[in-house]
Simulated scan of single mutants.
Amino acid sequence: YVGENKEFARQYLSGELEVELTPQGTLAERMRAGGAGIGAFFTPTGVGTAVAEGGLPWRYHPDGSIAMASSPKEVRSFHGREMVLEESIVADVALVRCAVADRHGNLRFNKSAQNFNPAVAMSGRLTIVEAERVVEAGEIAPDDVHVPGVFVDRVVELTPEQASRKQIEKATTTPRPEGN
């Protein structure tokens, strides 16, 4: 997601960065598959688009022309539905933040942090976690463990000041009308 980061967009458009744009659900599944040891999978997402047919700009030349584009992907039919082959993602390093970790690396996330953080943590060859709070082994109930410690290599405990600082978050709520 290039989004509102002007510096990231500048670097991408000037050819300083190589970026593979991937649908969000496909990205999550690619990471989950990588963490599960699955090499690739088929998905209907992207059939009939540049995701499957190739040509998405991954890197630009400084003059704005495309320096490198995505290649076409294999498309097969399953149960009468065309699907695109997507390779899993195994990251060299995964950096993850959690609400609570124990000393063995078992992790618990709060709210929407449960969406992608488990897949990210499991997809790393080396997974480093910054925890808002670190507890002793056994203090996280087994049903509350979102990522088992076998996937975590390092846990760094944040100070209370660091834990409360979440600079990337941006409130986007609408003020309530008077009297409500």
Rank of each mutant, 00 (worst) to 15 (best):
A67K: 14
T26W: 00
L56H: 04
R125F: 02
L27Q: 08
A94G: 11
I66C: 05
R108H: 15
G80L: 08
A28G: 13
A101I: 07
A119H: 09
A52E: 07
F42M: 10
L126N: 15
S14E: 13
V19L: 08
A50F: 12
L95I: 10
R30Q: 06
G25R: 13
G37D: 12
W58I: 15
G37W: 08
Y60Q: 06
A28S: 13
G105S: 09
S65T: 15
G105M: 05
A119W: 07
A52R: 02
S88W: 01
M68V: 15
A119V: 01
S71F: 06
V84P: 03
A119C: 09
G37L: 03
E87S: 10
A131P: 09
R32Y: 11
A119S: 15
R81A: 13
T26R: 01
A121D: 10
S77W: 08
P57N: 10
V51K: 05
A121M: 08
I89L: 14
Q24C: 08
E82W: 10
N106L: 06
G54T: 09
G15R: 00
R97P: 03
G46E: 06
R103E: 14
R108Y: 03
K111I: 11
R97A: 14
A67S: 11
D92R: 14
I66N: 10
W58M: 15
A33H: 02
G34A: 03
T22R: 12
E74S: 05
S77T: 15
A69C: 01
H79F: 15
V19H: 00
L95D: 04
M83T: 05
L17V: 00
V90L: 05
P44N: 08
N106I: 07
A33N: 07
R125T: 11
G64H: 04
E82V: 05
S123D: 07
G15C: 02
I89G: 01
I66M: 06
S70I: 00
R81Q: 13
S70E: 03
V100F: 01
P62Q: 01
T43E: 09
P23T: 09
G35A: 07
R30A: 06
E18V: 03
E86N: 10
P57I: 04
A91P: 05
L21A: 11
C98L: 01
A113G: 12
E74W: 00
T127R: 06
G80M: 08
V90Y: 00
A33M: 12
K73G: 07
G55W: 02
V75N: 03
